[in-house]
Design a protein around this nucleic acid. Structure first.
Lengths: 218, 218
DNA sequence: ATCGCTACTGACACTAATGTATATATCTAA
DNA sequence: TTAGATATATACATTAGTGTCAGTAGCGAT
């Protein structure tokens, strides 16, 4: 009974990925959509079209749209974690502020972290800690990690602690802002804009190192 | 034929606002929704319920959901404009960096400007200049306005111009970031958090004034 | 080779949100 | 008081987007 309708046109030959690869491709496409058009642009059908699959496949891999978004969050969080720990292991940050800022800028921009964070922040009231991953807490912890790393093992006063935390906070804020609205703030063309941003970061790192290394005020 | 169904329960007595008041109430509610739950939370039916009206009334006043959002944008832009020009007229900003920052923080936070800007930025690729209002351009222009105001009428070198623009840029970025993810960065309770933020702003303004007033480097 | 697992698909059901049509109530003005 | 204008309501249409289901096809293992 109920004979299955045969498609009139032969459908394109099916490509079968491993589950892992499929998940990665889907996440990449979703990330791309988010970067291009914001949260509203994360549509299962669109993402599926980008990857070249049918949208139920996404649901097969992630369970639901929300599952996909959670996976997106989790991936970004882990990327940030790895990034930061690599950065901290590599060198004592204090003596090369520029590299720290550049690295931070890269993570915020190219990995699309700034957009994700901003999105979390907007949903914050209902921001649930998903499967053990609490993005806000992790960002906070990471910034504290950087603070302690900069301060090293030397004994330090409360004022100095605050000084360092303000410095890190400023750096994070600035790089976050740059990633999100840097384009808005600088009117120049693409090429010029890049060098301008580099100079801005260099200027900022100098400012920070100066201020933090020599707490001459109050 | 087709006799109109009479409502069984007497509906609440209708309150009739002026168009202006209605628009304002609706915009307020929409803004509130945006602040609470992010862009996705801007739902006509929910907003209507908040105001105490039926959702077609919103469509009557704004034409469409998109019209509502554009009105929201426009209102925020004008608020920012007014805010900034008032700030600039009031005093030469250079000698009181704190007030400038506080004012900026207020606009970003309480007026919900940061969220709107972030939202624009996310949709940026397709960000259309709506009915003569181009939010990114306006933000950019305003920051340039501040720059010129700070620099005053004195003759100034290119380096100094860049210095000032970097300073303003940093201030805007920091206040923008604070408004969006300030909560994430500071773990403390609400009371303590506020004073912490004030101290951060004070610190930053000092930093900026110092650096800009005395360009001793490079 | 063929067998089983599962990635994948097309068709469809369901929901929720926007938008439309038309009637009604309230305010202002004469 | 009446008349016009319009802010508002109810009911419905439409669409778009998520999620379900049952069947298909590619790949690895025996």
């Amino acid at each position: 009974m109920a004979e299955q309708k045969k498609p009139v046109v032969a459908s394109a030959p099916r490509r079968r990925r491993s589950a892992e690869v499929a998940r990665r491709e889907i996440l990449d496409a979703a990330q791309h959509r988010l970067d291009e058009g914001g949260p509203d642009a994360i549509r299962l059908q669109e993402i599926a079209r980008d990857v070249g699959i049918a949208h139920p496949t996404i649901l097969h891999h992630f369970g639901s749209r929300d599952g996909l978004i959670q996976a997106l969050d989790a991936r970004a969080i882990h990327a940030l974690s790895d990034d930061v720990s690599a950065m901290l292991q590599g060198r004592r940050a204090q003596d090369s502020g520029v590299e720290l800022l550049e690295r931070l800028a890269h993570t915020m921009n190219d990995l699309g972290l700034a957009r994700l964070i901003a999105w979390w922040a907007m949903r914050e009231p209902n921001a649930r800690a998903l499967e053990g991953i609490d993005p806000p807490a992790l960002v906070r912890n990471i910034s504290q990690l950087i603070c302690s790393q900069i301060q090293g093992d030397e004994a330090h006063s409360t004022e100095r602690e605050e000084l360092v935390s303000f410095g890190v906070r400023l750096a994070v804020m600035a790089m976050f802002g740059e990633a999100l609205i840097g384009d808005i703030m600088s009117p120049a063309g693409a090429e010029e804009r890049d060098t301008e941003r580099h100079r801005f970061r260099a200027w900022l790192s100098e400012l920070l190192v100066e201020k933090i290394a020599d707490p001459s005020d109050d």
